[in-house]
Design a protein around this nucleic acid. Sequence first.
DNA 1: AGCACGCCGACT
DNA 2: GTCGGCGTGCTC
Length: 808
Amino acid sequence: MKNVASVIVDVPAMQTDRTYDYLVPDEWMGSISPGMRVVVPFGPRKIQGFVMELKEKGEVSKLKEISEPMDLVPVLNEELLSLGSWLTDKTLCFKISAFQAMLPAAMKAKYEKFFRLEGTVEIEGLPDPLRPFFNKGSEVSWKAVEEAGFLPIIQKQVKKGYVDVIYKVKAKGKKKTVKKILPNFSENQLEEIIGNLPPQAKKQKEVINYISSEVQAGNGLLLNEILEGAGTTASTIKSLVNKGLLIEKYIEVYRDPFENRAFEKTSPLPLTQQQSEVIGPILEKIDQSLHQTFLLYGVTGSGKTEIYLQSIQRVLEEGKEAIVLVPEISLTPQMVHRFKGRFGDDVAVLHSGLSVGEKYDEWRKIQRKEVKVVVGARSAIFAPFENIGIIIIDEEHETSYKQEENPRYHARDVAVRRAETHNCPVILGSATPSLESFARASKGVFELLTLSKRMNDGDLPSVSIVDMREELRSGNRSMFSQELFEKIQNRLEKGEQTVLFLNRRGHSSFIMCRDCGFVVQCPHCDISLTYHRFSNGMKCHYCGYEESVPDTCPECTSEHIRYFGTGTQKVEEELNKLLPGARIIRMDVDTTSRKGSHEKLLTAFGGGKADILLGTQMIAKGLDFPNITLVGVLSADTMLHLPDFRAAEKTFQLLTQVSGRAGRHKLPGEVVIQTYTPEHYSIELASEHDYDRFYLQEMMMRKMGSYPPYYFITLITLSHEDLLKVVEIAEKLSGFVRSRLSGSTIILGPAASPIPRIKNRYRYQCLIKYKREPNLTATLKTVLDQFQQQYASQGLSISIDVNPYMMM
DNA sequence: AGCACGCCGACT
DNA sequence: GTCGGCGTGCTC
């Protein structure tokens, strides 16, 4: 009899990163299976856990019992369970973190502690103010006692045994319910019931009749439908319920984030010659149920989405399911529309704009097989489908596919892994593929499919590069070059639209003294504070520290202290000054933080309610309006100087992406790129739309620097409050790693991280570059084991990022 | 991560 | 002599 369950408990720590055995109580026998969440006692408390397997005998003699199951059916199927251990191995994370990453946040347990007065003993010495909290046998939350300031007193009672501490595990996600009204009488009783109602109860009779006829017509009856349909109020219903003529019942419903929105049904568009050539090999693999990763390299506007849609169509025809990943930021309605329009209610959407509850609902639709297609951001790669027919990653070069916290996985790797188990193709789509993917395609690991022509045979926009140093020399100190300004004016006259792109990454506004060059820094993190006009204060982006802007320089007391860097607000102000008549929509974190505002602003712009759209990264993608004929990039090179070997790649991708916004339809587009380093190859080649040359040039740089795709890299970061301590341990660690790895592997450091201190912790890092290192995972595990065990208690923390995307 | 157990300083 | 500080070590 398999009545022992091995469970991974919800304690993300090295020491607990293993299974614990529990007895399955008789009452739950048969209803607990692997992949379910359970509540288990763990030491004195109760916590959530995942059942890994059922077995006959436990590892230890004395087993505790599972308290209760949290699910009726497993939330992780067999495939996801094994995917979880794969993820754990690949990213060196805790097993519990891997499993939790695969489920919506709503399914993560919440823990609460309660006090309960035991027995009938009157507690002596219990202060009067506590009595209202305490009735015998009732429970009071720990928090309430703490807030009232009675924690020490009650804890004393706990020690004496008069009060118990109760641990509760609560589910975060709630199922939304609506009230449904059912008749408590049959059709032939109708007359009699109406007759028995008092003559003055006119409304009640109407309601009874209404409900009866609706039920006969086969309609479900939600409370508010009745209220509307019969033109009555809740109190009438209530009295009928009280009379026993109606029954109220709560039924579960899904929150619908797309409520009140119609999606126009679309049908497959005829494919261009190129599109048909490209889709052929994909359909072939779908039909043969064979795995293959395709890199769909297509210029902006070449119709990649239609390829996705028609591939999915085929997959659905074969009764299988599809996962589509899109970068968080482009999960704008435009993209959702295209999928919902084609596949209607078969589509679930998962992205960060949804509330926890909405995400939970969408996830359950997938789990219950009520949808066939999921469109979502990174974590949607874990959609619990069981018969996947295709996985598509749009804009595959986007770095948001890499999770920057544990488990530090890349959705692309997970996609390939899942596709292998499901024997289905993967499509990686991009106009500017990541070097890694393109290199793999060149080597034949991926199959390269190319769309070189724009769908409407439109030309790519002409791009001109403006050297801002020249502008400065000729006396133009504004943020707009002569050329860009004239072109904006020209569009205004013609009634065409302009998109202005401000790249703020790595160049946010900071406060600097013009006399001594002093920059106000965070006292806890070695990074300059960012100026926020809204609060007229300065904020640290890493720890949240805030202070107000000084009047004089703290270093030299000069009054010439001012803020540098260009924010969107500042650009907007300047535009307003220079072009008083222009209607401007600004899109940045400030104006889009409210739910739905992103969409509203875009719709307004698309509807011609503004002449200029001004924004940050978030407008780089997905924007597809026919009237945009000019795109301006205010400073192209701000991210070029970041301490990141991918800086050039990211710059190229961004510029290409932004340029693609112009002239997508009938009107030809123009792009103006302003830069201080016009000679840089990433800027030059982006302006020529020459990915191929950029690829070759960048590959050369990577080869010289021994970076990916020539080498794999792994980044180890150590942090500690004491600088000397980190340095000392980092030295030891790198020595150890060096001794274990092969001679061809390059180990850089230890060196201070690009941000040497965050939240008062000094950071040192060690970069490992390797081509083939079969021992690496084992070595890193040993590193984690030994070093964590030896130094964790001293306050040292260690993080390992295999294939990092953020080098900070 | 919690929480208990256990061993040393300032108080009734 | 005890209350309570937080340093180790365990949790099926």
